[in-house]
Design a binder for these strands. Structure first.
Lengths: 193, 193
DNA sequence: TTGACAACTGTACAAATGTACAGTAAGCTT
DNA sequence: AAGCTTACTGTACATTTGTACAGTTGTCAA
């Protein structure tokens, strides 16, 4: 199921084209790019990628190639979506296209509610980019599940165990039971207007 | 020079396709979309758009259409770049691809130095998205030229004239001579790692 | 070696696609 | 009205492009 090196490069070639906002390559362009002798050779590899679920295509349409999952369209999840303990993609309040380099490492966006992290420059209404992971290091900003609620806090690991700290003196640290859902890898803010 | 309503819609149609990460339309697809009777009709409008400098195309290549200026790749300018009074694109320290919706209204990115705006959640190292304009309203965050230096401050218009305020009590307002270079429309932050 | 299977290639072809060019329609000036 | 310019359309055609299919090569097991 793992694509061969060549097929991975073909997939990357197609993604590159799309990222550069131009039309994806034709089969013959793929063949020329990788020194394949005929269009059907490219067709063969493209079919393999399609069978592996890595590539979508519109049959019969020229340049109808596109990576199956677009890593640039991130769902925006609301805090309420954490009720079940996992933040489900189905509960997205929408999605936002995030550019190539910017999207690196992020899996979803979470909209910030409240002012508990203003000391870290995270304001109400900001979108934080989150990568799903269950562990994090001391000092990192994480998304954690506290009871039924997902919160964004700074993780502190000390002798007395781990705790979640707000960056606002008005809020007390949370040292009880919690579970880390992900790590904050970036932040996006829009100024109204 | 101003494109007719139809031509503007054709341009938007092409952009939409690219934004959705799929291949731009063929001439016949454009014709079908807008009820034009023949491929040559679409070809005619495309040629007009090209002559107006709004569209680039690769001649003879299928689906070789793309908007002339890609609004998604924004240059990252450093503060030093403001020496001459204008922030020149040539002084970019790099560029960052910013997704469709996110890029709306922004023309370049400016990297924040210093902590004078921490009260507004703007931290050292953040990138602010800026739209060039010479006027701004009371309360908006702007990029302004003070002497030889470009700074990011909040604009306050009062009875005594306009002034630039930091969001950090350690810094005094700037009420002397300054010129507004642009308005901050967004903010992007990456957490290291 | 033999056979079986998958990976890959060559060729031919129908459909899709851009383009040239003559033509028509509509406005505008004189 | 006549003449001119511009906008748009119809048609034909060469090229590009996806696809089918038979053929070739390579790998692996027995």
């Amino acid at each position: 199921m793992a694509p061969s090196g060549l097929q991975a490069r073909i997939l990357e070639f197609i993604s590159e084209r799309l990222r550069a906002r131009s039309a994806p390559p034709t089969l013959r362009e793929i063949a020329a790019r990788f020194g394949l002798p005929a269009a059907s050779s490219a067709a063969h590899h493209v079919r393999k990628l399609e069978e592996a679920g890595l590539l979508k295509r519109r049959a019969g349409v020229s340049r109808g190639l596109a990576p199956a999952q677009d890593p640039f369209l991130l769902p925006i999840l609301g805090r309420a979506a954490a009720g079940s303990g996992v933040i489900a993609q189905e509960d997205a309040e929408g999605s936002l296209e995030v550019g190539g380099e910017l999207a690196r490492g992020a899996e979803y966006l979470l909209r910030i509610k409240g002012d508990s992290m203003v000391g870290a420059g995270i304001m109400e209404g900001d979108l934080v980019q989150v990568r799903r992971q269950e562990h994090a290091q001391d000092g990192e900003i994480v998304v954690a599940l506290v009871g039924e609620e997902a919160v964004v806090k700074r993780l502190r690991r000390g002798a007395g165990g781990a705790e979640l700290r707000s960056e606002n003196p008005a809020y007390a640290p949370i040292s009880g039971e919690f579970r880390i859902l992900g790590k904050v890898v970036g932040l996006i803010r829009r100024y109204g207007g």
